[in-house]
């Protein structure tokens, strides 16, 4: 069959597109139809099924902070996914409590998604509520003042701009909070 495509550009084009579209459609269009959790916001009120909570859409302030996160390319160095690896649940954890793994239903309102591919800095999927606003202000001015050895760039134009800074902190404090995973609810603001 394919020997025909050797001498006919039209036959070639049809075959090349068909070969591509089989996998193309099955791996992009079909999965969200099969796995409904991709599009349904997280909600759980039964503690026996894991952390309770509900995924709320971003407020205007949080969305503004998120836009800054996108603009500054934070996502090139910080992932936002606690993977199904023991070490990830420990590293995303806090004060001796392991973090729950990330599930698709926690990201329904994310666009652009911020899962990331490179972890030059720590993962931020459960950073919400760990550090207070003052910590973030100092850290954005110069990360090395709080974390010696850090290679994160300074962001004075965020730290010194109250509007941008408040939005940024509002977004960071939201991260990973759909699941109320701290037993003592000891979240910072």
């Amino acid at each position: 069959m394919l020997s025909k495509t050797d001498a006919s550009a039209a036959a070639f084009a049809v075959a090349a597109v068909v070969f591509f579209l089989i996998g193309g459609l099955l791996t992009t269009v079909v999965p969200p139809l099969v796995d409904k959790t991709w599009g349904k916001p997280f909600e759980n009120s039964d503690p026996s099924k894991g952390p309770i909570g509900k995924l709320e859409p971003y407020t205007d302030l949080e969305r503004k902070g998120r836009d800054i996160y996108v603009r500054e390319g934070c996502w090139y160095c910080h992932t936002q996914q606690t993977r199904t690896l023991l070490a990830d649940t420990k590293r995303s954890g806090w004060r001796g409590v392991d973090a729950p793994i990330s599930t698709p239903d926690e990201f329904v309102y994310d666009s652009p998604h911020m899962f990331g591919t490179k972890r030059t800095g720590p993962d931020l999927s459960r950073v919400g509520g760990k550090y207070d606003a003052q910590w973030h202000k100092t850290h954005f001015r110069n990360p090395r003042d709080l974390v010696p050895g850090s290679i994160m760039p300074p962001f004075p134009w965020i730290a010194e701009n109250p509007e941008e800074f408040d939005a940024m902190v509002a977004y960071l404090q939201k991260l990973g909070r759909a699941k109320d995973w701290r037993p003592d609810h000891d979240y910072e603001h």
Binding site: L2, A15, A16, F19, F20, I22, G23, G24, L26, T27, T28, P31, V34, D35, W38, Q81, R83, T84, L85, D88, I101, S102, T103, P104, E106, F107, F115, T117
Partner: peptide, 25 residues
């Protein structure tokens, strides 16, 4: 050529291994 044409497009989800995406995918 034809094995490339068929096989390559299926593999995108390997960027999210262990991540929050369906295990079967």
């Amino acid at each position: 050529f034809w094995s490339l044409a068929f096989v390559y497009v299926w593999t995108g989800a390997h960027h999210m291994l262990h991540g929050p995406i369906s295990q079967w995918l």
